[in-house]
Simulated assay, not measured.
Amino acid sequence: MKNLRSKLIGTGAVLTGLILLVAADHLEAPAVSGTTADITDIYAFEGANPDNTVFVVSVQSSLAPAGNNVSFDEDVMIEINIDNDGDLVEDRVIQAVPRGDNMYFFGPGTPTSTGLNSTVLDPDARTSVEISGMNDEFTMTDSSGISYFAGLRDDPFFFDFNQFNQVIQGPTVAPNGFNNPGTNDFANQNVLSVIIEVPNSLLGGTFDHPAGTGVPVFNVWAEAKRKQ
């Protein structure tokens, strides 16, 4: 795996860290939609330990509840990118690569290349966790304090998609706008998620929020990259 190179398939939105942040993308471009490289959500939030940050990246949206036999694609690497200085170029990466019944994690580390192509970080510096099914909860914490999870879980995204389609057609179709409460059209659907909780000391530095709030932040985005 040392020479594995990947190409950008899909990306989540850029986020500034250290508070709860969410980006969802359940409708992808035609080349990505419905594929094993389709990113549905990225979350970054403060851990139960305020000195840690939790990252969640989910792929493969709208998996039926009966689909407990679905699996991560071994040709797709999930990469979390962290920008420490505000130039929107990754300074640290965390990589997740599935092999058989396990997910292998690399980093956080300095990437050897940036942008659309990636090389797996030092393959000897890796940690693995058994991939969980819906009724399993396999986790692992390494000696540096990083905790890991990978597996099938209920889709946390809530969206009244059918009503949204009515609303965008205008007030003659949906005169009352959105329903309150709405209908969660993603209920009883699953996603495959990787979750990593990392001590902030391992993530590199921060920069002042560009809005001048004085809050230290870093940028985060996720990519699913297919082996070439």
Rank of each mutant, 00 (worst) to 15 (best):
V76Y: 06
S33R: 15
Y43L: 12
V56W: 06
Y43P: 00
T35W: 07
N84L: 01
S71Y: 04
V70A: 06
A66R: 14
D85V: 00
V70M: 04
V70K: 06
I42H: 02
D85Y: 05
F72P: 08
N81H: 11
A64D: 08
S61I: 13
M77V: 14
T53K: 08
F72H: 03
V70D: 01
G67A: 11
N81I: 02
N84T: 00
N69K: 14
V76C: 06
Y43D: 10
V57N: 07
A44S: 13
D73C: 03
P50A: 11
P50F: 12
D83L: 01
G34H: 02
S61E: 13
D85M: 01
A44M: 11
I39H: 01
A48E: 14
D75I: 01
D87I: 00
D73S: 09
G34E: 04
A66I: 05
S62N: 12
E74N: 09
E79F: 05
N81F: 11
S71H: 07
T53W: 12
N52S: 09
N52E: 14
G86M: 04
T35Y: 03
G67D: 03
S61F: 12
F55R: 00
G67E: 00
D75K: 15
F72G: 04
D83A: 00
V54W: 07
S61H: 14
V76R: 03
N81Y: 10
E79R: 09
V54P: 00
V54E: 13
D87P: 12
L63Q: 08
F72Y: 12
D75P: 05
Q60I: 06
E79A: 09
G47R: 07
A37S: 12
G34N: 02
S71K: 15
N49A: 08
T35S: 15
L88N: 15
N68I: 14
N69C: 02
N49H: 07
D41M: 11
E79Y: 06
D87M: 05
S61D: 15
I80Y: 07
I39S: 01
D51F: 15
T35C: 06
N84W: 09
P65A: 14
S33V: 07
V57E: 11
V57H: 02
Y43W: 10
N52D: 14
D38M: 02
N69A: 10
N84Y: 09
P65T: 11
V59C: 09
G47E: 05
G67Y: 03
A48P: 11
A48Y: 12
S33G: 06
A37N: 05
V57G: 03
N84I: 00
T53D: 14
N49W: 08
S58G: 09
T36L: 08
V70W: 01
Y43V: 13
T40G: 12
S58H: 03
M77S: 09
V59G: 07
S61N: 15
D83E: 01
V57T: 03
V56S: 10
I42R: 00
S61M: 12
P50E: 09
